[in-house]
Simulated assay, not measured.
Amino acid sequence: MSKREERRGERRAAILATAGECFLEHGYAGTTMSAVAARLGGSKGTLWSYFSSKEELFAACVEDKTEVFRSELVQVLNPGVSLRSAIESFCRRFMTKIREPQSVALYQLLCGEGTRAPEASRIFYERGPGVVQALLVAFLGAHEAAGRLRGGTPLEMAQVLISLCTGISHQRVLLGLNCPQGAMQPPPPEKITDLFFRLYAVDDAEVKRVA
Rank of each mutant, 00 (worst) to 15 (best):
166 T>H: 10
142 A>V: 00
176 G>C: 06
81 V>D: 03
10 E>R: 15
3 K>P: 04
40 L>F: 07
111 C>Y: 10
156 E>N: 03
59 A>I: 04
110 L>Y: 05
9 G>V: 06
22 C>Y: 06
9 G>S: 10
21 E>Q: 14
145 A>D: 14
77 L>V: 05
36 V>Q: 00
140 L>P: 13
67 E>S: 10
166 T>Y: 11
71 S>G: 11
23 F>G: 05
37 A>H: 02
124 F>Y: 11
40 L>N: 02
180 P>L: 06
31 T>Y: 01
46 T>M: 15
20 G>H: 05
166 T>C: 14
104 V>Y: 00
186 P>Q: 04
210 V>K: 06
56 E>C: 03
158 A>Y: 03
203 D>N: 11
73 L>M: 15
148 R>M: 13
122 R>A: 07
200 Y>R: 02
111 C>Q: 11
177 L>M: 14
45 G>N: 00
76 V>H: 04
97 K>I: 00
199 L>K: 03
2 S>D: 12
114 G>T: 13
81 V>H: 08
192 I>C: 05
192 I>N: 04
70 R>K: 10
62 V>P: 08
142 A>E: 12
8 R>T: 01
18 T>L: 15
63 E>C: 13
10 E>K: 13
136 L>Q: 06
189 P>L: 00
163 S>C: 13
95 M>K: 02
195 L>P: 06
44 K>I: 12
